[in-house]
């Protein structure tokens, strides 16, 4: 095969990254452009058009007048949001859940991966992996449904255990103080195994000779994990940490909304559910678009900032 190539200088010799290859080269790949065009159209329509449409946050959107026809009101919706009763509660809850999730949910898959990696028996290793990955495939609805079943104050299995040990049944799903803990730990249950895969992949690239050399030098197993395995996955950790910190304020709608009820709203109302309630249920399109835009912008700024910081402190960054 390589012999054929040397006699054929026509293809892809010229192109360097970013250099304009000339119309001829583009025309030669016309079918590739045709192939990708539906995807480009998709992104323009379903991702970039909404970015254009988000200007209704600065207008009083009336559907019959269209986006450009609606009156411009500047930052009125934003000031209304910043001054509203909900503002600090939403920030507190969104940030609280995000931070809690980061502090508890982020290290656990790392520990799990380091631990799985030390298992000698292949069968036990596979068993642990297969079992811990499984909950990832359950839907959010089912996981939250299971929470309601298990935590039911009258006949949920958790409260049965509490009562068995002489305690009083706890109304887990309606008490605001339990909300964040239940949210975070059920998330850990669902995704710790799946999130550990990426670290296991990184660990599989560690050179065994390093370990042999360390053993000769008398390093214990724990020391070897700390000084060989951990540094090996550090770049992966930093990359994922950047992504996670950058998303700290974008707590997902789906699970919070399912776990939410009027009794725990004090602790469970986050920006995305507020947008849903005011925007789609209350039809205040412009106001809720403003709240959503505020969230998107903050997320974007955080991601860029964290990435820049990481690049300064470390060699690793996203871009």
């Amino acid at each position: 095969m390589p012999n054929n190539l040397s006699s054929a200088p026509t293809v892809v010799k010229r192109e360097r990254r970013g250099g304009f290859p000339g119309w001829k080269a583009i025309a030669r790949n016309w079918d590739l452009y045709l192939l990708i065009s539906p995807v480009i159209v998709y992104f323009l329509v379903f991702h970039y058009y909404p970015m254009y449409g988000v200007q209704i946050a600065f207008r009083n959107f009336v559907a019959t007048k269209g986006i450009l026809g609606s009156t411009w009101v500047g930052l009125r919706h934003f000031t209304r949001f910043f001054n509203s009763f909900y503002f600090w509660r939403l920030i507190r809850n969104t940030l609280g859940i995000g931070l809690y999730e980061l502090i508890v949910g982020f290290p656990i898959p790392i520990i799990l991966a380091l631990s799985i990696n030390e298992v000698k028996s292949e069968r036990f290793k596979r068993l642990v992996q297969n079992v811990t990955y499984a909950p990832h495939f359950l839907s959010t609805v089912v996981v939250v449904g299971m929470l309601f079943l298990f935590l039911n104050p009258n006949y949920g299995v958790i409260n049965n255990i509490i009562v068995l040990f002489g305690g009083e049944p706890v109304f887990f799903m309606t008490e605001p103080k339990w909300f964040k803990t239940i949210y975070v730990f059920s998330g850990v249950w669902k995704s710790m195994g799946w999130s550990s895969i990426i670290y296991l992949a990184a660990l599989s690239g560690v050179d065994p000779e390093l370990h042999d050399a360390a053993k000769v030098d008398g390093a214990t197993q724990f020391q070897r994990i700390r000084h060989i395995n951990f540094p090996a996955i550090l770049p992966t950790i930093v990359t994922l940490l950047i992504l996670n910190v950058g998303r700290i304020l974008s707590v997902g709608f789906e699970k919070v909304y399912l776990m939410q009820n009027p009794l725990n709203l004090e602790a469970s109302d986050v920006i995305s559910t507020h947008v849903y309630r005011t925007g789609l249920q209350g039809a205040q399109y412009s106001y809720s678009a403003a709240v959503g835009l505020f969230n998107s912008v903050v997320n974007f700024i955080m991601l860029v900032t964290v990435n820049r910081l990481a690049r300064k402190l470390n060699e690793t960054s996203l871009w």
Partner: peptide, 19 residues
């Protein structure tokens, strides 16, 4: 770049719903 940017920034729920 055009694709990846959408992972980090979006118009949000309401504009998408209206679309």
């Amino acid at each position: 770049g055009m694709f990846v940017f959408t992972m980090f920034f979006s118009g949000g729920l309401i504009p998408r719903f209206l679309l």
